[in-house]
Structure formats: structure tokens, C-alpha cells
Nucleic acid binder design. Sequence first.
RNA 1: CGGGGAGUGGCGCAGUCUGGUAGCGCACCUGCCUUGGGAGCAGGGGGUCGGAGGUUCGAAUCCUCUCUCCCCGACCA
Length: 577
Amino acid sequence: MRMSRYLLNTLKEVPREAETLSHQLMLRACMIKKIAAGIYTYMPMGYRVIRKIEGIIREELDREGCIELLMPAVQPAEIWKESKRWDFYGKELLRFKDRKGADFCMGPTHEEVITDVVRRELKSYKQLPLNLYQIQSKFRDEIRPRYGLMRGREFIMKDAYSFDVNDEASEKSYWAMYHAYARIFHRCGLKFRAVEADSGAIGGSYTHEFHVLADTGEDTVLSCSHCDYTANIEKAECRKPDHIEHGDLHQIEKKETPGKKSVDDVAEFLAVKPEALIKTMIFTLEDDTAIAVLVRGDHEVNEVKVRNYLGLNALELADEEAIQSATGGPSGFSGPVGLKIRILADFAVQEMSNAVTGANEKDMHWVNVNPERDFKVSEYGDFRLAQAKERCPRCEEGRYQQFKGIEVGQVFRLGTKYSESMNCKFLDENGKEKPAVMGCYGIGVGRTAAAAIEQNNDENGIVWPVNIAPFDVMLLNLDIQDDAVNEAALDLYEGLRKEGLDVLYDDRDVRAGFKFKDADLIGLPIQVIVGKRGLKEGLAEVKVRRNGERVKVSPQDIPAKVEALLNGLKEQEEQRR
RNA sequence: CGGGGAGUGGCGCAGUCUGGUAGCGCACCUGCCUUGGGAGCAGGGGGUCGGAGGUUCGAAUCCUCUCUCCCCGACCA
């Protein structure tokens, strides 16, 4: 591609909206353009990367026998009502009506559609296993889209769905996908981890997420320093605390704490440690009843754990009004003493004594509060977020280590949730009707591109892994006015393309420095530089973007040299851990 | 949803307090000059100042309403 004819306007300055490095670089390199919050156009350069990633995904899934199809982006409400998710799914499901007033939504995922597709076709166990996938735009009306492609509302996703005769076969499909994913992300040149995670609103028995390791990642992953246990912070189990023998239980007493609402403020004011406080969080359930969740002052409620424990989809932190009506006091002063609502408490609370809690009235706290004596807990459980350095729940030796990750893929086992509710059944070898056992598997394509940039950049710009670079080679013609240079560059352009390489040829009439800066920003793995200076000695230059190394090579040897360098880089990148 | 901030040419910003000819840098066009790490000079095109109403002789600037975007939060999967 001749750059003079390409659509690629790089920016020297960073648009103000861009917070993360990948977002900034994508905007500067003219890969994406925003048209609304969380909604982007993939510009030619960006789209090439998307296509490269899609290509790798297709190859690896096809290798596993998966079959590609394309489902509609707009979905009728009926199938969502059938699966009971129309009311279950939150506000991120974008709903609308057609001209006849019928309900539709933009597909945030495609379990319903695929189940509908398969139930029409599936008759016999002989047709199984089946694994269907698509690469397509999805829409989730995120509350706060940000970081460019990292968390868009419209985003390109590969989603696959497996159908099997039984659990055992389904598990086989699951692990086949798990390994295909590992190959995909290796080929993309990414450092990643597969972690255990919460299965969330989509429902299902267990799941792994694939996280690209990056400091800017939005997800927190905890990993045992000793054993293999690695989990998303939402899932990460907390070790049950050792039993503590309580000393004397003191007399409960009310103290004034004017304006002290936060745990830290109250602890400081009463001269106790935050872990001496019982934090009382009031939540509102779907039917507007309120519940209280108690955790130790230095702990945080894990809403996912609470939600899963209650078997609910929706759980909202109560607003001021709800807190007032549930506790009789303002927010910041809630406590379990005298509370008439259902009270869940974290295991750690069970071991506390002479604690501090809110008194359910303005500017007042109780001290020397003791569980069971002063208030009744409905149920104890693991309701808090695990923290770094805590002891591992699975082994005796390890402690949690924490790192940040960008979730680029996930694999779920769905069981028969959808095949039962939507009647996707087949006849087994005994002629008995059975529901298909399903799994679903997603990869965020745009997010993978963004994650790759987060992991591969330097102060000059992007450093693309070879396998997902928009082009293989940047050919820089430094003297577009000079006939000899022009001729040499054109020969190289042809020669490189004959090798089957994707070449971006910078034939623009701009100064050399400008071209170097752009080449580094865009970040193609190899740069071939042709100028008057080198040509005097009959040589052109080859530069490796990743390490900056340059070698002078005679033009006729360049295609082979480039090829060799690319292969070397590729090998290195695929081996990364 | 709550809190904070911002909307002025494609991008980055000044001007708003104290109302009076819409400006600067980058990018773009023309010419000269220059040519191995985002050159220089000269000339030029492009903006209903997010939108609607109001106050005023006069509004980017003051008032009211509204929309959008960004950041933060116990938000989201």
C-alpha cells in the first residue's frame, strides 16, 4: 500500500479524552475514531489489526472443528423471554421497539439465537458434538464506557457455542476451547493467564477468563504464591478465619461521633483500628426489600458473592432513602443492632468482639458490640473481597499475590440452562429425548488489539507483535524527489511484495524525520529505509522496531533479510509467557 | 445514579472573571527554501463559540433550561 494513497492521518498531540496508553496510541496512529461514547469506527489501519486477530482465531477454531456462521445483531424479545433473560438482564441490554411495537434488543451475546438455530436443526446424537462460532459486533449499554476499545459499548466479539450429548463430552469441548484460546493468545504475542472466575449473569457452572497482564488492566487477579489457584478478585475465595477465643465482653455503649461516617474517620475518632469496626452495608433486592451485609471494617463487601449466595441477578447498594427506611438512620451510621431486616455477615465478623458499629441514628455509634449477644445474624458466609497477602484458601503454604489483567476471553460451561428452557433436544442412542449440554466461549477482538498495545509499546509508539501487525514492513523512501532513490524504493516495494509480505510504502513528499516518527508510532515490526545517503554505498537499511537495531543490506538481499527477521521475531513472540 | 470537570475550525488550547472586530499552536492549501529523527519564511482556506430561550444598543463572555463528552465513586460483565 502506498501511504500517499492511504487514509492515515497521524496525530502529534494526544486527544484529551484518551486516558490509557493503548487508547492514546490508537488515536494517534489513526486506528479508531469515536462517533459516540463507546462507539468507534475502525479506521483502515485499525481494521487490519482486527482482521489479523480474527484470522488467527479462525485458524485455531477451525482446527478444533468449530464451524463459522453469522447471526443477526438485532434479536427479538421472544427468545429472551423464553430463556427468562428479558427481565433478568440488566440495563446494559439495549431494548427498543419496531414500528409495530414489538420488542427487540441489540444482541449483547447470542445464547438465545444459537440455541434457537440449533434446536431447529438438531435431531440426533449423531450430529453431536457441534461447535458453532461467529465474529460479529455486539452491543452492551455499559454504564461507563472508557479506554477506547478496551470497554466500548459496541465491540467486535468472537463467540462460540458448543453442544454435546452429556457433561463428559461437554467438558471435553470446554478444555479443547481452553487450549485453543491459549494458542490464539500465544500467537498474538501476548503474555496472559487463564484464571478462575465468577460465571455472572450468563449463568453456568464454572468458567475461566483469559487475562492479558498489564498494569492498566481493569481486572484484579489473585494468584497463590505456592499452588496453582488463580482467580478473578470477584471469585477469589477467602480462607475461613481461625477461631478466636473471645475475652471479656464489655458493656455495650453509645458514643457520639459527629460527622464521622467512613470507617477510617470513625476508627480515628474513637482511637481504634479499622478492623475493630463492623461495616454495615445496606442493599436493595429486586423486590425492594432491604438486607444488611456485615464485613470487618478493613474488608470490602464482594457483591458478586452476596448475589450468588442469594441466587439473585440484581443487587443494588441502597440509596439514602432506602437506608433511612431500613435502618431508621442516615447513611454512614448504619449498624446491625436492633435492625429488623435480614442480616448476612462475613465469616470474619463471627470472630469479632467488642466491636464498633453504627447506631442507626445521626452522629452516633455503638461500641463494645458483640455478635449474637447484641444482634442476630441470619447467615454467615464468605461475602468479602479477598486481598493481596492473605493466606491461600486452597493450600497451607501460599499467600495471595495480586496483579492487573485485561480480560480478553472467557470460556463458560452452560450446562442445559438454555437447552432446557428453550427446548433444544436430541434423541440419544436409545431413542430417548435429551437436552444438549452447552458451553460458550468469547473473545473480545478489539480488546485484544488494545491489550496488545498496552503490552507492546515504547516512548515512540506502538511495537506490534508480528502476527497481528497491520502490515509486516514499513518501506521508507527518504528522497521522493530523487530518481535513483525512487527507483530503488519501487524495486524494493515490488520485491518485498513478491515475498508475500504486506508492505506499507511511505512515498509521501515529507521530510525524513517526519517519516521516521510516523513509522515508529505506527509500529510495524520491520522498517526498510532507502535514502540517498545509503544508496551511495549501494545499500539500504533494515531496522527492527522492537529493539531499534539497524543493519545495512544490499537491496537485492533485503526481502530475504526481512523475511528472516520476521520469522525470528515471530518465534520469540509466540514463546512469551 | 451521585460527585467533579469540560464543550471555541480536524487535533491541542487561549479568550469568559471585568459584555464591544473570534485568536494561537499543530494539521490542511499555495509559493520559496530545506531534506537521515515531527525544519524555516511568506501567503491562504476553514469556526451558527454544543443547543434553546432570556437580559442588553451589543453576548463565546451574564441568567435559565437542555444536550454531549471526560474523570472519580461501594458502578459494569
